[in-house]
Amino acid sequence: MRGLALLDAIRAVWWREVRRTLTDRGQLVGGVSRPVLWVIVLGIGLNPWFRGETYGDLRFVVPFTYLQFIFPAVVVLNILYAAIQSASSLIWDRKFGFLRELLVSPMPRTAILLAKVLAGTTIAVVHGCLVLAISRIAGVSLGWDTLLMALALMAALGFAATCLGIVLAISLREFESFGVFSNAVILPLYFTAGSVFPIDPSFSRAQTLMTYPAWLVTVVEANPLTYAVDTMRGVLIGWQEHAAWIGPTVIGTSVIVLFALAAYRFSRL
């Protein structure tokens, strides 16, 4: 199978996944309740406490409200959840037989995987857009150029996260294990990605280590999601801690490495 027939087969599998997920009320409720909780409850609740603070000689210089600061991270969180959760369809398909039906079709396995990953990406972008829809509440204004860049970044993140979800779903055969395990992956990744607190860029490394424990700084710096959240901040509120080239490089590398890993695991199903 090749050419247009292959593209059409990928489209059919992609659309099946997207339609199934977008008509699943549970996932939509999750996609809406997460930003409501994080942005409106946590963001508004902590907003007054997020201000310029002085610790001895050090002063935080994040020039934004907490709502604005956390908003891009919530976009990333919603993408992570949606993408990884969409990968759980693989467990469903495996358990209820539909995957076998696809595996005996003339579609190459990489094409089946690509269709599933693109579906997860689409769903993740939709869930990211659900957060963008409440940008005004967070005090973030979006122009068309910002929106287009955010969509491209959300798609890349969604792609990488779906690949990660598929690798997890191949390893775990039960929905229950997948739910617990995916939370055990998403939340530590999220909390150690500079999502809910900044490591101030104006600090020298020595100053940073005076303010935060060394293990936390190391974990945050080693977490690839740190650079994704940072890049999303750069796009949405025009402020980021790290050099602008680092985020796209880390995300691009993650896309390639995670897809290759997912393809390897999928080929051995």
Binding site: L6, D8, A9, R11, V13, R16, M107
Partner: peptide
């Protein structure tokens, strides 16, 4: 829809 997905996956001409 089940039949339509099969048609596409097996490359049945549109």
């Amino acid at each position: 829809a089940n039949l339509a997905v099969h048609c596409a996956a097996w490359g049945v001409p549109r």
